[in-house]
């Protein structure tokens, strides 16, 4: 089974596609520790997000990532991977849904060309992504291990070779872009890292909505102004302060 080969069983490496980690190595293009956004009493454990690939395919960009929990994974209702790429009601946003436990968006960001590429959508408005692991069995699956997930983002330009990634409340910068899907694939929607790659639903990708998924970014660079000393106290602690620090 290719998934076995992916973690380095000797003697079969010759038959592997070029992306297979034949030397017991798994590509990691960046990692981040991600905490919870919420204000609830029970704070979900911090998870580790690893970016394994940003791959250009026909009509989409596939972001492969893994989420790992040291110890018990949180309650399925709190799992951070349930809504990745969904964001708020407005398509293509870079922000989290109201009430989200973790930031639930995903995007590729190209600052030099001032564009971001968010998740493609189904007709129902859901992100085209790996089916979220939310059952009780999945809680076991996610405990003390990292599993690979994917989300389909808007297609990026042909010449773009390095991007920044926003995933799960964290930025991972300087991620190299590759071409084609990662192989070998396994018949598992959330394979353990190193056992192979999840199969991408190319049918869903092909039929996805792309409206509002590409955003134009705006830079604000101005002359530096001398900073103003802070007022010593204010009777209205919740008042919005002056935005005078902005250079724009």
């Amino acid at each position: 089974m290719l998934g076995v080969v992916a973690v380095g069983v000797p003697g079969t490496a010759g038959a592997l596609p070029k992306d297979v980690p034949v030397d017991r190595e798994v590509p990691v293009l960046g990692q981040a520790a991600v905490g919870a956004l919420g204000q609830g009493e029970e704070r979900p454990p911090t998870m580790v997000v690893s970016v394994h690939g940003v791959r250009r395919i026909q009509g989409a960009t596939i972001l492969y990532y893994s989420v790992g929990f040291a110890g018990d994974a949180p309650d399925p209702e709190l799992l951070p991977v349930t809504d990745y790429g969904t964001g708020p009601d407005t398509y293509g946003t870079l922000q989290a849904s109201a009430g989200a436990t973790f930031m639930d968006t995903a995007a590729v960001i190209d600052v030099p060309h001032r564009r971001s590429y968010a998740a493609l959508r189904t007709a129902a408005g859901r992100a085209v992504a790996a089916p979220p692991p939310v059952s009780e069995a999945d809680r076991v699956r996610l405990s003390d291990r990292a599993v690979v997930q994917w989300v389909a983002l808007a297609p990026i330009p042909e010449k773009l070779r390095t991007v920044d990634v926003l995933i799960g409340s964290a930025f991972v910068t300087g991620v190299a872009v590759g071409d084609g899907l990662l192989e070998p694939t396994v018949d598992d929607e959330a394979p353990v890292v190193g056992s192979g790659w999840p199969t991408i639903d190319t049918l869903a990708v092909g039929g996805a909505r792309k409206d509002y998924t590409v955003k134009k970014l705006v830079e604000h660079v101005g002359k530096r102004k001398p900073s103003t000393p802070a007022p010593k106290s204010s009777p209205s602690a919740s008042a919005s302060p002056s935005p005078s620090a902005s250079p724009s």
């Binding site: 973690v7 190595e25 798994v26 590509p27 990691v28 293009l29 960046g30 990692q31 910068t173 300087g174």
Partner: peptide
Amino acid sequence: MTRLRRRV
């Protein structure tokens, strides 16, 4: 840029 190959 972080670019690693993590060994299992």
